[in-house]
Design a protein around this nucleic acid. Structure first.
Length: 283
DNA sequence: ATCCAGGACAAGT
DNA sequence: ACTTGTCATGGA
């Protein structure tokens, strides 16, 4: 592997970004992060001058890796704007530096379909097993595999899919793969569609509701207006912005988009991180 | 052992 | 449109 350098502007925080729950195939240890991007192993370390990267992918793909990590975003200016909000200003000292990743749409889509009524460690387990069972081997990867394309899954038996700890979601994942492989939706094409059109296309897929659609729009397609409302965000927003009054997820989504505009996705990340840090629980 | 987890879905108000 | 019950599985 040839080491390379990627510049990043403060307050970008690699570990906080990778551990914010956006992605499920990166592992962060003491002083380095290891992940699989574009079928290639990447080992990244954050130092005072930027990111040191070890990976054997083509050099011209480094810009893609930088984008994947969200290291190309003007976080200083973004967080300065977010800090106008009193709630976010209180959270930011603990959550500053979280960037929005630009993940592969297909892997992101499967990840969040699997996320339904699940927990983060087990989502990681399932996504890792899907790669192991159905993906291709990686040259330099110790025991890693690339994430399987949609074309690899339609013929899989439900029994073998269930070995990935998918449970009742196994039929969803296979049906989803069949739709994508059949071309009912082109995940690369809708990347260039307007937000509402792309959301509608995602919502038409099996296993994709409003929350999952927003996650893909935000973490894969880069739509900052998206504001995924899960149980953590719902509780935190109700408590911190609405005096504990119960709200529907749809109402929260509309409120967030109106309040934060194109920075709604960043606001969501800080609320989510803050809620988990403080272990916000239902009353 | 019992409970819960980044929800989607269908059926009922 | 909003509310409720249901859905495998692994970890605490």
């Amino acid at each position: 592997m040839s080491p390379a350098h990627l510049s990043v502007a403060p307050p970008y925080h690699l570990a906080r970004t990778l551990q914010s729950g956006q992605c499920f195939r990166w592992t962060v240890s003491a002083h380095q992060a290891r992940g699989i991007v574009d079928g290639t192993v990447a080992v990244v370390t954050q130092g005072p001058r930027g990111l040191a990267v070890c990976w054997d992918g083509p050099r011209r793909r480094l810009a893609m890796l930088r984008s994947h990590l969200g290291a190309d975003q003007p976080l200083a200016e973004i967080e300065r704007t977010l800090a106008i909000d009193p709630v976010l200003r209180r959270l930011l000292p603990q959550t500053s530096g979280i960037a929005l990743m630009r993940q592969d749409p297909w892997e992101c889509l499967v990840s969040y379909v699997v996320s339904a009524f699940n927990n983060i460690p087990k989502i990681s387990l399932s996504i890792g097993r899907l790669a192991r069972c159905f993906g291709g081997p990686i040259a330099n990867g110790a025991h890693d595999s690339s994430f399987p394309s949609a074309a690899r899954l339609p013929e899989a038996s439900l029994a073998r899919l269930r070995t990935c700890a998918l449970g009742y979601r196994a039929p969803y994942v296979r049906a989803l793969a069949r739709h994508v492989a059949a071309g009912d939706v082109d995940l690369d094409v809708i990347a260039r569609w307007p937000l509402d059109d792309a959301r509608a296309a995602l919502l038409a897929l099996p296993g994709v509701g409003e929350k999952v659609a927003d996650c893909v729009l935000l973490f894969a397609y880069g739509w900052g207006e998206a504001f995924p409302v899960d149980v953590w965000v719902q509780r935190a927003v109700e408590r911190w912005y609405f005096q504990g009054r119960t709200m529907t997820a749809r109402a929260i989504r509309a409120w967030a988009r109106d309040r934060f505009g194109p920075l709604a996705g960043y606001a969501q990340q800080h609320v989510f991180a803050g809620a988990r840090r403080l272990k916000i629980r239902p009353v």
